[in-house]
C-alpha cells in the first residue's frame, strides 16, 4: 500500500474525516467506472460507490493494510453491487447514452471523447448489450481484467477466490462474450430499428 494512502488512513482513524475525503477524490472515478460496467445504470453505480465508501469508512478500523487500499475498496464495491443487483433483480440495458445512441448530456466528462464516441456507438451498444447478458461472475472478471487492467492476483484478492478460478472464469467469460457478439456481427438486417 502506498505511504500516502497509509498516512491518510491513519489520519482518518485518528478522527480526521477530511482525510477520507482525499481518498474519495482519489478513487471515486475508477470505482465508478467499474461499478457502472457492472450495474449498467448511472444512478445505481452512484449508489454502489456511495455505499462502498460509506462501508469502507465504517470498516476502516478493520483494514489490516496487508493489501492495497484500492483492492480492499474494490472488494467492498463489488459486494455492494452484488447486493444491489440481488435487491433490484434487474439489469437495465445500458443505454445511458440516450435512446438515440448519442452522448449522455448529463455526463460531459473528459473521459468520453465526443468524436470517437459517436463513431463507435454501435459497437459500444452491441458490446454493452452483450455485457448485460453475461452472467455476473463472468462480467466481474472481464471488467476487472480488461477494463480495469488488473492482474490475476489482484482479481483473486478482490473476489476472494483462487487464481486458478480466475483464470478459468476468464476463459469461460471470453468464450461466452464471443458467443454473444457472434450474431451481431453476422446480422445485417436493416429492420433492426424500431417502428416509430
Amino acid at each position: 500500500m502506498s505511504d500516502d494512502d497509509r498516512q491518510l488512513i491513519a489520519e482518518c482513524l485518528g478522527g480526521q474525516r477530511d482525510a477520507f475525503g482525499v481518498l474519495v477524490t482519489r478513487y471515486q472515478a475508477r470505482l465508478y467506472n467499474a461499478a457502472i460496467r457492472l450495474v449498467d445504470n448511472p444512478e445505481d453505480a452512484a449508489d454502489v460507490v456511495q455505499d462502498a465508501f460509506l462501508n469502507a469508512f465504517q470498516s476502516l478500523h478493520s483494514f489490516k493494510g496487508d493489501a492495497e487500499f484500492f483492492t480492499w475498496l474494490y472488494r467492498i464495491a463489488f459486494n455492494t453491487a452484488i447486493s444491489l443487483k440481488r435487491k433490484k433483480r434487474a439489469a437495465v440495458s445500458l443505454d445511458a447514452v440516450g435512446p438515440d445512441g448519442g452522448i449522455d448530456p448529463d455526463d460531459p466528462s473528459e473521459y468520453v471523447k465526443p468524436g470517437l464516441a459517436l463513431e463507435r456507438s454501435e459497437d459500444e451498444r452491441q458490446l454493452q448489450d452483450a455485457m448485460v447478458r453475461l452472467s455476473h461472475e463472468h462480467r466481474e472478471v472481464l471488467v476487472l481484467k480488461d477494463i480495469e487492467g488488473m492482474r490475476y492476483e489482484d482479481i483473486a484478492e478482490i473476489l476472494k477466490v483462487p487464481i486458478g478460478t480466475i483464470r478459468s472464469r476468464l476463459h469461460r467469460a471470453r468464450l461466452e462474450l464471443r458467443e454473444l457478439l457472434q450474431p451481431t456481427e453476422t446480422d445485417t438486417d436493416p429492420e433492426n430499428e424500431e417502428h416509430s
Partner: peptide
C-alpha cells in the same frame, strides 16, 4: 473482443458524488 472492452470510454462519476459521500459520512 478484448480490444473493444479496453476501448470502452471511461465514464466519469457525477460531479456531486464526492460531496454526497462526505455528507453521508458526516451524518454518521
Amino acid at each position: 473482443d478484448r480490444n473493444k472492452l479496453q476501448a470502452l470510454p471511461r465514464i466519469a462519476p457525477p460531479p456531486e458524488l464526492q460531496s454526497r459521500v462526505m455528507a453521508r459520512i458526516a451524518s454518521l
